[in-house]
Design a protein around this nucleic acid. Structure first.
Ligand SMILES: [Mn+2]
Ligand SMILES: [Mn+2]
Ligand SMILES: [Zn+2]
Ligand SMILES: [Zn+2]
Lengths: 143, 143
DNA sequence: CTCCAGTTGAAAGTGGATGTCATAATAACG
DNA sequence: CGTTATTATGACATCCACTTTCAACTGGAG
């Protein structure tokens, strides 16, 4: 699946006339092999540890490209930092965010999605995307 | 209900040893008699039209007070601006946000709320609050 | 190998939120 | 009522997370 995403990104770049560079390769590897939901700064620092010459702006721009290519999703959990997470073709999930330790769990619930569609339909609203986040204490932090 | 919220705020101020000022009265009136979901800037400009001496910082600080007092809720719809909406005791609702005209509709769905609780429970997660936003085209903008 | 369009990193710019501080207003007290 | 301690206000400064700019630097087509 890392392979698949790399191909998606390569195709995207070709189709847009963008170039392959070692920075982009680095950033893609770091992104794909990292925890989900990292901020730009976090990914930047991680890469910078081994490649001190990388620029913040390059990481920033490359993550935007990932999002455009469809292999990353930009998100906001209200902590003032934009985060990026991996996404696969047609995948979707929502989040449980721990307000104490900051951990993020994912979940899917088809019934909720269905109800959302119904709510929207009943008002003539057409959903393009949605966002559902449950904030609270994770199992560990409740103890 | 405007009356009720004013009382809640007055009590809050008394209990915290805060002073009553004409600015706070102005801002509370403007807030309570305005559209829901305004940004600080929007409310500031609205008040400033009739009271040119009001300061942005005062509006900013007063809205924070409203939130602390429990008569306003701070929210983010991803457009880079913090918005405040009216909230009543024990009230809750979620949002439909039009990505074209920016209008915001509200809805409640008890079944969805129930399912959220179940999802959380099945993972040992304790929900403190949540956020559900459906983005897309409103009835008007679909035409 | 050449050459040009695309890329990079440092640095400057943005915009909204938040902090600072001298001045002004509130309200308790004598 | 005046006095006085406390809190509030508004102009301005600062912060911070991006976002843009630009001169130097590739990648890769031809
Ligand atoms: Mn996720
Ligand atoms: Mn609302
Ligand atoms: Zn936790
Ligand atoms: Zn609309």
């Amino acid at each position: 699946m890392k392979r698949a995403k790399k191909k998606v990104f390569t195709d995207f770049m070709t189709q847009r006339g963008l170039k392959s560079t070692k920075q982009r390769d680095l950033i893609l590897d770091a992104f794909l092999s990292s925890d989900r939901h990292l901020s730009i700064e976090e990914l930047y620092l991680k890469i910078r540890a081994k490649h001190p010459n990388i620029g913040y702006a390059t990481v920033y721009r490359t993550l935007k490209l990932f999002a455009e290519a469809g292999i990353a999703r930009e998100m906001q959990f209200g902590d003032g930092q934009t985060r990026y997470e991996h996404v696969g073709e047609g995948e979707h999930h929502d989040h449980l965010v721990c307000t104490r330790c900051g951990s993020i769990e994912e979940f899917e619930n088809e019934t909720i999605e269905q109800l959302q569609t119904e709510v929207a339909a009943s008002r003539g609203f057409l959903i393009e995307r949605h966002r559902l986040e449950l904030y609270g204490l994770c199992g560990n932090c409740r103890k």
